[in-house]
Write a protein that binds this DNA or RNA. Structure first.
Lengths: 197, 197
DNA sequence: GATCACATACCGACTGGTTAGTCTGCCGGG
DNA sequence: CCCGGCAGACTAACCAGTCGGTATGTGATC
């Protein structure tokens, strides 16, 4: 038999992760039983506990994936060759787009983080902090250069923007009047407008 | 014995609600057992199920209280006698202050809403929508008057601001460098600055 | 190229513990 | 004497994680 696949083509660990992501987002972490996850993935508990140490590990893996992705993208935009205004706008819009593209991950992220054990929670917070600080550095760079207002501490500006990103999973619907890109452009625009000197 | 009080002075239903609020915020709705709630309130299950139909009713009551409070305050600021810029700024800052003052309620609100049954969830959404629309009306009024930019749809501006409010429970700490009022002023300022024509 | 040893991948019944909600009954004041 | 207000034991259901077992693949040895 091929390694860890089954009738379906995709490997079992990934199928489990995908099923867990969908179910966690739909019913919440605590309301999703391990039994439901393995059924949705077409395997049994034995398979899950063969690849993952616990139900919590599954949740942490969802986080880890999202964080890696977002950090990579932020770094790419932040380190690009362009005026600071442009780099911040691109980064701010991109995080909106990728969040919308992974709305399930986003809602899990913000609703279920406190379900992680203290150590794993700490780990996630550290990664989040790195992301936050890279973003803040962009704003401070613009403030020093005089293109952004210094009326508001950069930290607060970051939280202001991420608040709106965080909030997306509450209200954004692909069936709504605005496309992903339109929402992203508007939100980035609001940020840049708020930062005008 | 006096009616519904016990050794403590405050009535049992309120004690239950207060205990539930604190515990829900601390450990999450699902992780809080009914047993823990009644112990924290100094009563037993008999008392809880005497006053509340279910654990879920307790959660809904927390929501209802917060919503009533916020709606009242918004109406007061929105209908005041002042230029639209001032009214929006006051309302935007006030919602930040009252949210910080009730951070427990806020984190419950945004983390546990999906634990409510469909009917109760619908009820809460209806109330939230009313709040959202009153706020939006303020922005549209300013846009029509020409004092706010029309570059962004008012709906989106509302979600942008509420995103940051929503997000407060994630990062705000009373021990931090900023007081409630300072945060509120900064966030309201960011909103108004973003809306400059 | 047949056999053996061992590992990987998975199955599914079982266990120990927890939980929301029920129900019977006591107790004291009006 | 009756009823609101509450106590607390009880139940029925559920659930994460375990564990012994099976099947298939892989590499070494003769």
């Amino acid at each position: 038999m091929a390694k860890a696949t089954d009738g379906n083509g995709t490997p079992v660990p990934q199928r489990l992760l995908a099923a867990a992501t969908r179910l966690f987002a739909e019913h919440g972490y605590d309301r999703t039983s391990v039994q439901e996850i393995v059924e949705a993935a077409g395997v049994t508990k034995g398979a899950l506990y063969h690849y993952f140490g616990s139900k919590e590990d599954l949740l942490q893996e969802v986080y880890a994936r999202v964080l890696r992705l977002q950090q990579e993208r932020l770094d790419a935009y932040a380190n690009a060759e362009a005026p600071i205004e442009q780099r911040l706008r691109d980064a701010a819009a991109d995080v909106v787009v990728t969040t919308i593209e992974n709305l399930d991950d986003a809602s899990i992220f913000f609703r279920s983080m406190h379900h992680l054990s203290p150590e794993k929670n700490k780990q996630v917070r550290i990664e989040r902090r790195r992301y936050h600080e890279r973003f803040r550095a962009l704003i401070e760079e613009g403030q020093r250069a005089g293109v952004f207002s210094e009326a508001t501490p950069a930290d607060l500006v970051v939280d202001y923007h991420f608040g709106s990103v965080h909030h997306l999973s509450t209200w954004y619907s692909p069936d709504g009047p605005l496309s992903q890109q339109e929402v992203a452009d508007h939100l980035a625009d609001l940020l840049l407008r708020a930062l005008r000197p």
